[in-house]
């Protein structure tokens, strides 16, 4: 790593101040994406601002029909939360399927969402549930938040503080993991609220997480696996690498979407 200054603010205001004072500051949450990047000397921030010590960014609560999760809440906490299990069991399962148990002890929902890694799990739930991303300065619909590979609508210095998930009637998640990296090469999050269905795909998109309108339409009309059995996915906009070609990903999206719908309320992890 290149040298940097570490800060551990107690309030959002302190975090904002540290950011504005740093030459090239960046926020640190669980650090399980950022620190490996720094160790490989692929980035050289002047200041790391650790947001995990800010109390208002912690915690899980149910309020006004929403499941509200503080951005600095760890994957393990989300996984183990009785509230999450009761309201959106697939989200709990998703959190419990990220990385390995040591990673889940450190990584956070806000860090993962704000980083928008194309193979991260959380963006598919945020988009697939139509969540609202709350920052220190505004609220953004998930459809507006994810912009591209590692890119979000966040402005410089903008801190994701909380994510509000509307509670769906049912949600489900199916993922297929790379044998090497263990990240998802395809993962599909499906939610149904009334007749509205959202289908979000992570791990596969050349521009990061994305929705599948055709699948959503078909499932809105008929929320059964058979409804999407005939659909295919265009490999054109998909990633292609050593562990998965675009064609393979396209086929896996079809399979994972169907399998997700086959087991509503559950999460399935394949490898």
């Amino acid at each position: 790593m290149y040298p940097f200054t570490y800060h551990r603010p107690k309030t959002i205001a302190e975090a904002q101040q540290a950011f504005s004072e740093g030459m090239d500051a960046t926020f640190l949450s669980g650090g399980h994406t950022l620190l490996p990047t720094l160790k490989q000397r692929l980035a050289a921030p002047s200041d790391l601002i650790d947001v995990t010590g800010i109390p208002e960014m912690q915690g899980i609560e149910e309020a006004g029909g929403f499941l509200k999760i503080g951005a600095a809440t760890t994957h393990d906490t989300v996984f183990a939360s009785p509230i999450v299990r009761r309201l959106i069991p697939a989200l709990s399962g998703l959190a419990g399927s990220i990385g390995d148990r040591h990673v889940r002890h450190r990584g956070t929902i806000g860090g993962s969402t704000a980083n928008n890694d194309p193979s991260a799990d959380y963006p598919s739930a945020v988009l697939g549930l139509g969540a609202t991303v709350i920052t220190d300065r505004r609220e953004m619909a998930s459809d507006d938040f994810f912009v591209g590979l590692y890119e979000t609508a966040r402005e410089p210095g903008e801190i994701v503080t909380r994510i509000d998930f509307p509670v769906p009637d049912i949600a489900c998640y199916a993922k297929f993991r790379s044998p090497a990296s263990r990240y998802s090469i395809v993962a599909v999050f499906v939610s149904k609220t009334g007749s509205a269905v959202r289908v979000a795909v992570t791990g596969a998109g050349a521009s990061g997480v994305f929705r599948l309108p055709e699948f959503e339409e078909a499932l809105s009309a008929d929320f059964r696996p058979e409804a999407i059995a005939h659909l295919t996915v265009d490999p054109d906009m998909l990633l292609s690498d050593m562990s998965a070609t675009a064609e393979y990903r396209a086929d896996l999206i079809r399979v994972m979407a169907r399998r997700a719908v086959e087991k509503p309320g559950q999460i399935q992890s394949f490898k």
């Binding site: 790379s178 090497a180 990296s181 050593m242 490898k271």
Partner: peptide, 16 residues
């Protein structure tokens, strides 16, 4: 070389 990390070089693990 394209396999320069455990994220790229698949290994025998507990679960496989």
């Amino acid at each position: 070389p394209l396999a320069a990390a455990f994220t790229e070089y698949g290994m025998p693990r507990f679960d496989n």
